[in-house]
């Protein structure tokens, strides 16, 4: 049969690709958690690769240029997109999170250059691990500042 060798070859390749995808997924999976979720499942997530999202609290940002150590705190923001929309969009949610002293917070440590976008009310999306000391050690830090695009119009608007 001329066809069978093609079928076997194709099946072998598909199996290899499926193996690559499954095993790489297992190795590289990062659990996406909110601050509340991390606090609730503290013990079970200890040595896992995590992805954490939160609102940056501007007053807590500290940077030591000698060691390039950056520390700051993030406040809980909902992880579900529908929730964020229901609460008036990302900018409003971040603002509310930062203004609310009762919100759950977590301390973050990151070593590296100070990111350009780090400021109060930015959304930080961090990849890293939760230490036994309750501090989140970030290896990667992404920032999003919706305020820049959705801020209210300036006061000095004038009528022609």
């Amino acid at each position: 049969m001329g066809n069978s060798k093609f079928i076997i070859g194709g099946a072998l390749i598909l199996a290899a690709v499926a193996y690559l995808i499954v095993s790489s997924t297992q190795q590289a999976a990062e659990y996406f958690l909110t601050v509340d979720e991390i606090n609730a499942q503290r013990d079970s997530v200890l040595d896992r690769s995590l992805r954490l999202s939160g609102a940056v609290l501007g007053d807590t940002i500290q940077y030591d240029p000698q060691t390039l150590t950056l520390t700051f705190e993030v406040a809980h923001v909902p992880g579900d997109n529908a929730d964020i929309e229901a609460q008036g969009g990302l900018a409003a949610v971040l603002h509310a999170a930062v203004s609310d002293p009762a919100r759950a917070r977590i301390k973050v440590v990151y070593v590296g250059p100070m990111p350009d976008l780090l400021r109060s009310e930015a959304q930080a999306i961090m990849t890293g691990r939760l230490g036994a000391d309750g501090i989140f050690y970030a290896e990667e830090l992404l920032l999003k500042c919706p305020t820049k695009y959705e801020e209210a119009l300036p006061e000095q608007a004038s009528n022609p």
């Binding site: 690559l20 995808i21 790489s24 997924t25 190795q27 590289a28 990062e30 996406f32 958690l33 992880g79």
Partner: peptide
Amino acid sequence: VCFWGVIFPLISELFTGQKVTVGPPFYERA
């Protein structure tokens, strides 16, 4: 591989309720 990586957070949330993402190591390894 790429498509799987992009939609994986949605799939995992749909089936396990837990949002799981895959980063660059996934794409590089696969």
